[in-house]
Protein backbone atom coordinates (compact mmCIF):
# COMPACT_ATOMS: atom_id res chain seq x y z
CA UNK A 1 0.00 0.00 0.00
CA UNK A 2 1.39 3.35 -0.91
CA UNK A 3 1.50 6.03 1.72
CA UNK A 4 -1.43 8.41 1.76
CA UNK A 5 -0.54 12.05 1.13
CA UNK A 6 -1.29 14.73 3.69
CA UNK A 7 -3.60 16.44 1.22
CA UNK A 8 -5.64 13.27 0.79
CA UNK A 9 -5.70 12.80 4.54
CA UNK A 10 -7.06 16.30 5.07
CA UNK A 11 -9.62 15.75 2.34
CA UNK A 12 -10.64 12.50 4.01
CA UNK A 13 -11.09 14.27 7.36
CA UNK A 14 -13.26 16.87 5.66
CA UNK A 15 -15.38 14.30 3.87
CA UNK A 16 -15.76 12.22 7.03
CA UNK A 17 -16.66 15.29 9.01
CA UNK A 18 -19.28 16.40 6.52
CA UNK A 19 -20.83 12.95 6.23
CA UNK A 20 -20.99 12.40 9.98
CA UNK A 21 -22.22 15.97 10.38
CA UNK A 22 -25.02 15.40 7.90
CA UNK A 23 -26.41 12.74 10.24
CA UNK A 24 -26.39 15.22 13.14
CA UNK A 25 -27.96 17.84 10.89
CA UNK A 26 -30.77 15.44 10.02
CA UNK A 27 -31.62 15.08 13.72
CA UNK A 28 -31.29 18.83 14.26
CA UNK A 29 -33.80 19.52 11.50
CA UNK A 30 -36.28 17.30 13.33
CA UNK A 31 -35.71 19.22 16.57
CA UNK A 32 -36.38 22.49 14.81
CA UNK A 33 -39.78 21.51 13.45
CA UNK A 34 -41.24 20.88 16.91
CA UNK A 35 -39.34 23.81 18.36
CA UNK A 36 -40.78 26.14 15.77
CA UNK A 37 -44.30 25.25 16.80
CA UNK A 38 -44.07 24.55 20.52
CA UNK A 39 -40.74 25.95 21.75
CA UNK A 40 -39.96 22.59 23.25
CA UNK A 41 -36.97 20.42 22.52
CA UNK A 42 -38.34 16.96 21.90
CA UNK A 43 -35.79 14.64 23.50
CA UNK A 44 -37.51 11.69 21.86
CA UNK A 45 -36.24 12.92 18.47
CA UNK A 46 -33.33 10.46 18.60
CA UNK A 47 -35.80 7.64 19.20
CA UNK A 48 -37.61 8.49 15.94
CA UNK A 49 -34.32 7.95 14.15
CA UNK A 50 -33.75 4.67 15.95
CA UNK A 51 -37.29 3.52 15.16
CA UNK A 52 -36.89 4.52 11.52
CA UNK A 53 -33.82 2.32 11.24
CA UNK A 54 -35.21 -0.68 13.11
CA UNK A 55 -38.67 -0.66 11.53
CA UNK A 56 -37.00 -0.46 8.12
CA UNK A 57 -34.85 -3.47 9.06
CA UNK A 58 -38.01 -5.32 10.04
CA UNK A 59 -39.93 -4.50 6.87
CA UNK A 60 -37.09 -4.67 4.38
CA UNK A 61 -34.87 -7.44 5.74
CA UNK A 62 -37.14 -9.59 7.89
CA UNK A 63 -40.39 -9.25 5.89
CA UNK A 64 -38.62 -8.95 2.55
CA UNK A 65 -40.59 -5.91 1.39
CA UNK A 66 -38.82 -4.17 -1.53
CA UNK A 67 -37.01 -0.93 -0.72
CA UNK A 68 -39.45 1.21 -2.67
CA UNK A 69 -42.36 -0.01 -0.51
CA UNK A 70 -40.57 -0.46 2.80
CA UNK A 71 -39.23 3.10 2.74
CA UNK A 72 -42.60 4.92 2.68
CA UNK A 73 -44.19 2.28 4.93
CA UNK A 74 -41.55 2.91 7.58
CA UNK A 75 -42.06 6.65 7.37
CA UNK A 76 -45.81 6.21 7.79
CA UNK A 77 -45.38 3.94 10.81
CA UNK A 78 -42.96 6.26 12.58
CA UNK A 79 -45.21 9.23 11.77
CA UNK A 80 -48.10 7.40 13.40
CA UNK A 81 -45.93 6.91 16.49
CA UNK A 82 -45.15 10.63 16.46
CA UNK A 83 -48.87 11.42 16.29
CA UNK A 84 -49.59 8.98 19.10
CA UNK A 85 -46.99 10.66 21.30
CA UNK A 86 -48.81 13.94 20.90
CA UNK A 87 -52.30 12.49 21.28
CA UNK A 88 -51.54 10.20 24.22
CA UNK A 89 -49.04 12.27 26.17
CA UNK A 90 -48.17 15.82 25.23
CA UNK A 91 -51.74 17.02 24.66
CA UNK A 92 -52.93 15.95 28.09
CA UNK A 93 -50.48 18.00 30.08
CA UNK A 94 -52.40 20.74 31.84
CA UNK A 95 -50.92 24.27 31.96
CA UNK A 96 -47.77 23.02 30.31
CA UNK A 97 -44.58 24.84 31.13
CA UNK A 98 -41.73 24.33 28.72
CA UNK A 99 -39.84 22.45 31.39
CA UNK A 100 -42.67 19.97 32.09
CA UNK A 101 -42.98 19.34 28.37
CA UNK A 102 -39.28 18.56 28.13
CA UNK A 103 -39.53 16.10 31.02
CA UNK A 104 -42.53 14.53 29.27
CA UNK A 105 -40.52 14.02 26.08
CA UNK A 106 -37.72 12.46 28.14
CA UNK A 107 -40.29 10.08 29.64
CA UNK A 108 -41.54 9.24 26.17
CA UNK A 109 -38.02 8.54 24.96
CA UNK A 110 -37.44 6.20 27.93
CA UNK A 111 -40.62 4.30 27.11
CA UNK A 112 -39.83 4.02 23.39
CA UNK A 113 -36.32 2.81 24.16
CA UNK A 114 -37.66 0.20 26.58
CA UNK A 115 -40.20 -1.05 24.07
CA UNK A 116 -37.60 -1.20 21.30
CA UNK A 117 -35.28 -3.31 23.44
CA UNK A 118 -38.19 -5.68 23.93
CA UNK A 119 -39.13 -5.95 20.29
CA UNK A 120 -35.69 -6.00 18.70
CA UNK A 121 -33.43 -7.09 21.53
CA UNK A 122 -30.18 -5.37 22.28
CA UNK A 123 -28.05 -6.34 19.30
CA UNK A 124 -27.32 -4.01 16.40
CA UNK A 125 -28.96 -4.55 13.01
CA UNK A 126 -27.73 -3.96 9.51
CA UNK A 127 -29.54 -2.79 6.39
CA UNK A 128 -28.32 -3.26 2.83
CA UNK A 129 -27.00 -0.03 1.33
CA UNK A 130 -29.29 1.53 -1.30
CA UNK A 131 -26.64 1.62 -4.01
CA UNK A 132 -24.07 -0.94 -2.96
CA UNK A 133 -21.13 -0.72 -0.62
CA UNK A 134 -18.29 0.00 -3.06
CA UNK A 135 -16.66 3.19 -1.82
CA UNK A 136 -16.17 6.06 -4.26
CA UNK A 137 -12.63 7.37 -4.57
CA UNK A 138 -12.09 11.15 -4.72
CA UNK A 139 -8.45 12.28 -4.99
CA UNK A 140 -7.24 9.59 -2.61
CA UNK A 141 -10.10 9.98 -0.16
CA UNK A 142 -13.10 7.66 -0.07
CA UNK A 143 -16.80 8.03 0.60
CA UNK A 144 -19.58 5.48 0.92
CA UNK A 145 -22.24 5.97 -1.78
CA UNK A 146 -24.90 5.73 0.95
CA UNK A 147 -23.78 9.11 2.26
CA UNK A 148 -25.06 10.76 -0.94
CA UNK A 149 -28.51 9.52 0.01
CA UNK A 150 -28.16 11.01 3.49
CA UNK A 151 -26.97 14.37 2.18
CA UNK A 152 -29.54 14.37 -0.61
CA UNK A 153 -32.47 13.79 1.73
CA UNK A 154 -31.06 16.34 4.15
CA UNK A 155 -30.91 19.07 1.54
CA UNK A 156 -34.37 18.25 0.19
CA UNK A 157 -35.85 18.22 3.70
CA UNK A 158 -34.25 21.51 4.69
CA UNK A 159 -35.34 23.32 1.54
CA UNK A 160 -38.85 21.92 1.66
CA UNK A 161 -39.28 22.81 5.31
CA UNK A 162 -37.91 26.31 4.88
CA UNK A 163 -40.38 26.94 2.09
CA UNK A 164 -43.17 25.31 4.09
CA UNK A 165 -42.64 27.46 7.17
CA UNK A 166 -41.92 30.72 5.33
CA UNK A 167 -44.27 30.59 2.35
CA UNK A 168 -47.32 28.45 3.09
CA UNK A 169 -50.29 29.43 5.20
CA UNK A 170 -50.14 26.27 7.31
CA UNK A 171 -46.44 26.75 7.87
CA UNK A 172 -46.90 30.32 8.98
CA UNK A 173 -49.79 29.30 11.19
CA UNK A 174 -47.55 26.70 12.79
CA UNK A 175 -44.82 29.22 13.54
CA UNK A 176 -47.41 31.57 15.02
CA UNK A 177 -48.29 28.97 17.66
CA UNK A 178 -44.82 29.16 19.14
CA UNK A 179 -44.67 32.94 19.22
CA UNK A 180 -47.94 33.29 21.04
CA UNK A 181 -50.30 30.37 21.30
CA UNK A 182 -53.18 32.41 22.71
CA UNK A 183 -53.00 35.01 19.98
CA UNK A 184 -52.70 32.27 17.38
CA UNK A 185 -55.85 30.57 18.53
CA UNK A 186 -57.58 33.97 18.68
CA UNK A 187 -57.02 34.46 14.95
CA UNK A 188 -58.55 31.06 14.31
CA UNK A 189 -55.50 28.78 14.21
CA UNK A 190 -56.15 25.36 15.66
CA UNK A 191 -53.09 25.23 17.90
CA UNK A 192 -53.60 21.60 18.90
CA UNK A 193 -53.70 20.49 15.30
CA UNK A 194 -50.57 22.44 14.50
CA UNK A 195 -48.70 20.80 17.38
CA UNK A 196 -49.91 17.42 16.17
CA UNK A 197 -48.70 18.23 12.68
CA UNK A 198 -45.30 19.25 13.99
CA UNK A 199 -44.87 15.93 15.82
CA UNK A 200 -45.91 14.05 12.70
CA UNK A 201 -43.52 15.99 10.49
CA UNK A 202 -40.54 15.65 12.76
CA UNK A 203 -41.21 11.94 13.28
CA UNK A 204 -41.22 11.54 9.52
CA UNK A 205 -37.92 13.39 9.16
CA UNK A 206 -36.46 11.29 11.99
CA UNK A 207 -37.56 8.13 10.19
CA UNK A 208 -35.90 9.23 6.97
CA UNK A 209 -32.70 9.89 8.90
CA UNK A 210 -32.83 6.48 10.54
CA UNK A 211 -33.51 4.65 7.28
CA UNK A 212 -30.68 6.34 5.41
CA UNK A 213 -27.97 6.07 8.08
CA UNK A 214 -28.57 2.48 9.21
CA UNK A 215 -26.73 0.94 6.23
CA UNK A 216 -23.64 2.92 7.28
CA UNK A 217 -23.77 2.96 11.03
CA UNK A 218 -25.94 -0.06 11.97
CA UNK A 219 -28.75 0.59 14.45
CA UNK A 220 -29.63 -0.68 17.90
CA UNK A 221 -32.24 0.20 20.50
CA UNK A 222 -30.17 2.65 22.54
CA UNK A 223 -28.62 4.73 19.78
CA UNK A 224 -31.24 7.46 20.13
CA UNK A 225 -29.81 9.31 23.12
CA UNK A 226 -26.44 9.94 21.51
CA UNK A 227 -28.08 11.14 18.30
CA UNK A 228 -30.38 13.42 20.29
CA UNK A 229 -27.48 15.04 22.13
CA UNK A 230 -25.45 15.61 18.97
CA UNK A 231 -28.50 16.83 17.08
CA UNK A 232 -29.43 19.19 19.92
CA UNK A 233 -25.88 20.57 19.82
CA UNK A 234 -26.15 21.10 16.08
CA UNK A 235 -29.54 22.81 16.37
CA UNK A 236 -28.33 25.14 19.13
CA UNK A 237 -25.08 25.93 17.36
CA UNK A 238 -26.91 26.85 14.17
CA UNK A 239 -29.60 28.77 16.02
CA UNK A 240 -32.80 27.08 17.16
CA UNK A 241 -35.56 27.20 14.60
CA UNK A 242 -33.33 27.84 11.61
CA UNK A 243 -33.12 25.01 9.08
CA UNK A 244 -29.99 26.28 7.29
CA UNK A 245 -28.61 26.78 10.80
CA UNK A 246 -29.28 23.14 11.67
CA UNK A 247 -27.34 21.99 8.62
CA UNK A 248 -24.49 24.40 9.28
CA UNK A 249 -24.36 23.37 12.95
CA UNK A 250 -24.34 19.67 12.13
CA UNK A 251 -21.59 20.00 9.54
CA UNK A 252 -19.43 22.12 11.84
CA UNK A 253 -19.73 19.69 14.75
CA UNK A 254 -19.02 16.72 12.49
CA UNK A 255 -15.97 18.43 10.97
CA UNK A 256 -14.50 19.44 14.32
CA UNK A 257 -14.86 15.88 15.56
CA UNK A 258 -13.19 14.49 12.47
CA UNK A 259 -10.31 16.98 12.29
CA UNK A 260 -9.91 16.84 16.05
CA UNK A 261 -9.62 13.06 15.96
CA UNK A 262 -7.27 13.07 12.99
CA UNK A 263 -4.97 15.93 13.88
CA UNK A 264 -5.09 16.36 17.67
CA UNK A 265 -6.43 13.64 19.98
CA UNK A 266 -9.18 11.18 19.18
CA UNK A 267 -10.14 10.60 22.83
CA UNK A 268 -11.10 14.25 23.20
CA UNK A 269 -12.77 14.73 19.82
CA UNK A 270 -16.27 15.12 21.28
CA UNK A 271 -14.94 17.56 23.86
CA UNK A 272 -13.35 19.74 21.12
CA UNK A 273 -16.69 20.05 19.37
CA UNK A 274 -18.44 21.00 22.59
CA UNK A 275 -15.79 23.54 23.57
CA UNK A 276 -16.15 25.25 20.20
CA UNK A 277 -19.92 25.16 20.67
CA UNK A 278 -19.58 26.84 24.08
CA UNK A 279 -17.24 29.52 22.78
CA UNK A 280 -19.56 30.32 19.90
CA UNK A 281 -22.54 30.52 22.25
CA UNK A 282 -20.69 32.89 24.55
CA UNK A 283 -20.16 35.27 21.65
CA UNK A 284 -23.39 34.60 19.80
CA UNK A 285 -25.95 33.62 22.44
CA UNK A 286 -28.59 32.70 19.85
CA UNK A 287 -26.43 30.48 17.70
CA UNK A 288 -24.87 31.21 14.34
CA UNK A 289 -28.01 31.84 12.29
CA UNK A 290 -30.49 32.38 15.12
CA UNK A 291 -31.98 35.80 15.54
CA UNK A 292 -31.55 37.56 18.86
CA UNK A 293 -34.84 39.41 18.45
CA UNK A 294 -36.81 36.21 18.00
CA UNK A 295 -35.11 34.47 20.90
CA UNK A 296 -36.07 37.37 23.14
CA UNK A 297 -39.78 36.81 22.50
CA UNK A 298 -39.54 33.12 23.30
CA UNK A 299 -40.59 31.96 26.70
CA UNK A 300 -37.78 29.50 26.87
Amino acid sequence: MEKITLASQLLQYLITGLTVGSVYAMVAVGFNIIYNVTEIINFAQGEFVMLGGLIMVFLHVAMGLPLILAFPATIVLVTVIGILIDRLAIRHIRHPSVFTLIIATIAVSIIIKGMASFIWGKDPFDLPAFSGRNPINILGAVIQPQYFWVIGFLVIAAIALSIFFDRTIIGKAMSACADNADAASLVGINVKQMVLLSFALSAAIGAVAGITITPISLMEYDRGAMLAVKGFGAAVLGGLGSFPGAILGGLIIGSIESFGAGLIHSGYKDAFALIVLLIILFFKPSGLLGSTEISRIKRF
Binding site: I4, Q9, Q12, T19, A141, A261, G262, K269
Partner: peptide
Protein backbone atom coordinates in the same frame (compact mmCIF):
# COMPACT_ATOMS: atom_id res chain seq x y z
CA UNK B 1 -20.90 5.80 13.77
CA UNK B 2 -17.71 6.36 11.85
CA UNK B 3 -13.98 5.76 12.52
CA UNK B 4 -12.71 7.01 9.16
CA UNK B 5 -10.76 9.88 10.72
CA UNK B 6 -8.86 7.66 13.14
CA UNK B 7 -8.10 5.10 10.44
CA UNK B 8 -7.01 7.79 7.98
CA UNK B 9 -4.50 8.99 10.52
CA UNK B 10 -3.23 5.43 10.93
CA UNK B 11 -3.09 5.05 7.16
CA UNK B 12 -0.64 7.93 7.05
Amino acid sequence: TDMMAQLTKIKG
